[in-house]
C-alpha cells in the first residue's frame, strides 16, 4: 500500500523535465507531448542509442531527439500576427553593414548584466528563477566582435547552455560573422555584437525596451541585422 502511494505516474515523470525535479532544458519538450507519444519517444530513443553504438553513428540519436523537439514545439503559438513588416533588401551583400543580435544570454566577463539584481548568478539559479525572469525587462549586453571567446559568459533560464559554454558560436556566431566579413561576403560590421536573455517579459520588451534598441541600430547605420533565437 505504502509502495503504491509513493509511485510516480508517467505523466509526473515526463513533466518533471520541465522545471521540475529532473529539469533538463533539452528535454523539457517531453511535457508538451501526449503520454503515448512521450512513451514512444523514450522507447525509440533507447533503441536508437543501441543502434548508434552498434553502427558508430550518433546521428541516429540526434535525429530522434530533433524529431522529438519538433513534435514537442509544433503546437506552441505564443504570439500570433496576421501580417507583419517586410523591408525590401535591395543592396548587394558585398556592400552592406551588418550587426548581430541574439537572445542567447551571452555577456562579457566583468560586465554581468546582474539579472534580478543578482551578481554572478549561477546557471542553476537562473533556471530555478525562470518565472521571475519572465516578468523582467531584458537587458542588452554588448560584446565587441574582436572579443576572445574565453572572455565570454553565458547564462539563460530557458535553454540548455552546455554547447554555448563550449563554443559561443553555436548560438552567438560572432566569430563566424568576422570570418565572412574577412572573406568579403559583406562590407562592414558594427564594433559590437549584442545579446540578451530571451526569457523575459514580452510586454516590457514590446512597450519599453524595443524602441531604444531600434534607435541604437538606426544610429549605428546598419543595413541589416542577423538575429538568432534560442
Amino acid at each position: 500500500m505504502e509502495k503504491e502511494k509513493n509511485q510516480e505516474s508517467f505523466e509526473a515523470f515526463i513533466k518533471s523535465f520541465f522545471y521540475g525535479k529532473r529539469t533538463d532544458l533539452s528535454f523539457k519538450f517531453l511535457s508538451e507531448l501526449a503520454l503515448e507519444d512521450a512513451s514512444t519517444f523514450i522507447q525509440n530513443l533507447f533503441k536508437d542509442i543501441i543502434d548508434s553504438l552498434d553502427d558508430k553513428d550518433l546521428s541516429i540519436v540526434k535525429q530522434r531527439i530533433l524529431q522529438g523537439q519538433i513534435e514537442g514545439y509544433k503546437e506552441q503559438k505564443n504570439f500570433e500576427y496576421d501580417d507583419g513588416p517586410f523591408h525590401p533588401f535591395k543592396k548587394p551583400l558585398s556592400s552592406i553593414k551588418l550587426s548581430l543580435l541574439t537572445s542567447s544570454g551571452h555577456f562579457l566577463k566583468g560586465h554581468d548584466p546582474k539579472p534580478l539584481g543578482v551578481e554572478n548568478m549561477s546557471q542553476g539559479e537562473a533556471v530555478r528563477r525562470v518565472f521571475d525572469f519572465l516578468k523582467e525587462e531584458p537587458q542588452l549586453s554588448k560584446i565587441p566582435f574582436d572579443s576572445n571567446p574565453k572572455d565570454l559568459m553565458v547564462r539563460h533560464s530557458g535553454y540548455d547552455i552546455r554547447a554555448a559554454l563550449k563554443d559561443p558560436n553555436v548560438s552567438f556566431p560572432y566569430q563566424r560573422m568576422v570570418n565572412l566579413k574577412d572573406q568579403g561576403v559583406f562590407a562592414e560590421l558594427t564594433s559590437n555584437a549584442y545579446s540578451f536573455v530571451g526569457a523575459c517579459s514580452q510586454i516590457r520588451l514590446l512597450k519599453k525596451t524595443l524602441p531604444g534598441w531600434v534607435d541604437k541600430f538606426v544610429d549605428l547605420g546598419v543595413d541589416a541585422v542577423v538575429l538568432v533565437p534560442v
Binding site: 503559438k77 543580435l101 537572445s103 538575429l227
Partner: peptide, 27 residues
C-alpha cells in the same frame, strides 16, 4: 523575443534575417 525584435527593426527599415532551429517553425 527575437520575433518581436525582427518586427520592430523591419518597421524601422532595417532588414533582418533570423537563424532558428527547426523546432521553432510554428512560432
Amino acid at each position: 523575443s527575437v520575433g518581436h525584435v525582427a518586427r520592430a527593426l523591419e518597421e524601422a527599415k532595417i532588414a533582418t534575417i533570423i537563424i532558428a532551429v527547426k523546432a521553432f517553425e510554428t512560432r
